[in-house]
């Protein structure tokens, strides 16, 4: 039994210690955002935030994250009360199929949490582990910029923003 802190809540997980975090999030906790893309740490689709850092959940075994703060896209905001990063991606219409987007958003969120005003080059470099096949890159870059602006100008963050740390 492993205790996992996800989006501010504690869960008791009954899974082998070598189970990648991805499958625990998706199958045990029924969270959709982290996606299976390669299972090899090559594409970024499975990215979540662990203790403030972007992490590839498909190559992160459960035993490495016990007790750490895990945040998924679901923990940032909702359709009705989107977090700045979510609002920005909606406003920029930064998706085609959107499969890769949740992972990108989590890495962008981690970046913005430690650097509220990243340059264009910093955003590109940060997103380098992530693949997008539809070619939505230009919009994604704009959305991250917009999110930085939204975070900067937001007077009050939504209440559920807290879990993003």
């Amino acid at each position: 039994m492993t205790t996992l802190k996800v989006n501010g809540q504690e869960h008791q997980i009954e899974a082998d210690a070598d189970t990648p975090l991805l499958y625990v999030l998706r199958d045990e906790l029924k969270l959709n955002a982290a996606k299976f893309g390669c299972g090899l740490g090559q594409c970024g689709s499975c990215t979540v935030i662990v203790d403030g850092k972007a992490v590839l959940s498909c190559v992160t075994p459960l035993l490495l994250v016990e007790g750490k703060q895990i945040t998924t896209l679901e923990g940032l905001g909702t359709d009705e009360a989107p977090a700045p990063i979510q609002r920005a991606f909606m406003e920029e219409q930064a998706a085609q199929c959107g499969y890769c987007i949740a992972g990108m958003m989590m890495r962008a969120q981690a970046l913005l949490q430690r650097n509220s005003k990243p340059t264009d080059a910093e955003i590109r470099a940060e997103l380098a582990p992530h693949l997008c096949r539809c070619g939505t890159h230009m919009r994604i870059l704009r959305a991250v910029k917009r999110a930085a602006h939204l975070m900067d100008t937001a007077e009050l963050l939504p209440a559920n923003q807290g879990s993003a740390r």
Partner: peptide, 16 residues
């Protein structure tokens, strides 16, 4: 018009 499928895709809704 903003796409109808994007909100679920950027908030972790069941989309796929």
């Amino acid at each position: 018009v903003p796409r109808v499928d994007i909100p679920a895709k950027v908030t972790g809704g069941a989309a796929y």
